Simulated scan of single mutants.
Amino acid sequence: MIEEIPLPCARLGTRRVLAVHRFGAPGARPRAYLQAALHADETPGMLVAHHLIRLLREAAVTGEVVVVPVANPIGLAQVVEGTHVGRYALDGGGNFNRQFPDLTDAAAERLSGALGDDAAENVRLVRAALRAAHADLTPATEVAALRHALLGLALDADLVLDLHCDQEAVPHLYTGEALWPALSDVAGELGCEAVLLERDSGGTPFDEACSGPWWRLAGRFGSETPVPFGCAAATVELRGKADVSDALAEADARALLRILVRRGVVAGETAPPPPACEATPLAGLERLTAPHPGVIAFHRAVGERVAPGDLVADIVDPSAADPAQARTPLRAGTAGILMARSNRRFAGMGELVASIAGREPLQRTGRGLLFD
């Protein structure tokens, strides 16, 4: 079944909708939610969703699966002089994958005195409280309405996968500390070469808006009123922006189907997943930025292992009076995998050039760990 959810019209004469593909019986468990291209210029997930929808049409869905293959029709339309601006809202609404509502406090108020020692019943009560807290929100802008609609589709799912990509990257995954290693099969099936864990990455991205209230509520109410993690959510980065092909997308879609089978959402049998890579703290992600503008000359490819001091790239000022003084080296400060790098070959001062996933924390945990 396909449902169209209209978004409020920000301008006269415009109309945008979310196309929602539903499989299985409404309300059946387990429930899975998948969306693609919340950052609207990140194309790989849309083609993966296309192949997954085709596979699900032929599968026996015993739970419920909801797929939103184009999660951001606002950003998809933001093309300025041939340049697609899909990461940020041009109306000032910011990064499309930030500032999702945190429903924890509002749900906690509704749950005060209601929870008991029955974990399954507590899960039901928490889901009802989250839905009620969400229903009470009144978004004031088109972007806020988009965030509200997407969160409403996902917030009571058992599994939430938000499909993104980086600029140039190996497959990798972001998720909460509390959800690892429960999501290790997702990383293994999709061939992730890095998994980044954090309790609160800052900025309230979509996956944390779905799963974060569960571990926060569990911490508030304590062991006498157990709150299991009723939603396992992750941001999946499907390589780089140019890694778009039917071969890659179908392989990823089949991996996602195996994940759904393993969780009992889709009927069938599947082999054990490939082993997952090592998970490392999001605070251990080193970001190399350009100290001044210049041409980027890379010396390391994504997926390579680096050690402290290794040369990753040079920032070259082609206008320098002395070519011998034109290069500024960017060297790794930590040991790890070169997870991602810029797909542009010119950087402005302070712009992100490359990211290295390392084991040792380098940043302050808590707020602001995500590169906006």
Rank of each mutant, 00 (worst) to 15 (best):
M1V: 11
I5H: 03
R16V: 02
L18K: 04
F23H: 11
R31Q: 10
G45N: 05
R54S: 15
L56P: 03
R57C: 10
I74Y: 00
V79R: 11
V79G: 06
H84M: 07
A89R: 08
G94F: 01
F96Q: 02
F96Y: 15
R98K: 08
T104W: 06
A106K: 06
D117F: 13
A120S: 13
V123W: 00
A135N: 07
A140P: 00
A149E: 02
G152T: 04
D166K: 01
L173C: 03
W180R: 09
P181W: 14
E189S: 13
L196R: 00
L197N: 02
S201N: 06
T204M: 13
F206G: 08
G212Y: 12
G212V: 09
R216V: 05
A218N: 04
R220Q: 15
T225S: 14
G230Y: 06
E237L: 07
A247S: 14
L248T: 07
A251S: 15
L256W: 01
V261G: 08
R262I: 02
R263W: 12
G264R: 08
A267F: 02
E269W: 09
P281F: 06
P281L: 10
L285V: 13
E286G: 08
R300Y: 01
G303N: 00
V306Q: 02
P318T: 14
S319D: 13
A320N: 11
A321T: 14
A324C: 12
A326Y: 10
T328V: 15
A332Q: 04
A335N: 02
A340V: 01
R341M: 13
R344Y: 10
P361S: 14
P361A: 14
L362P: 05
Q363Y: 04
L370P: 00
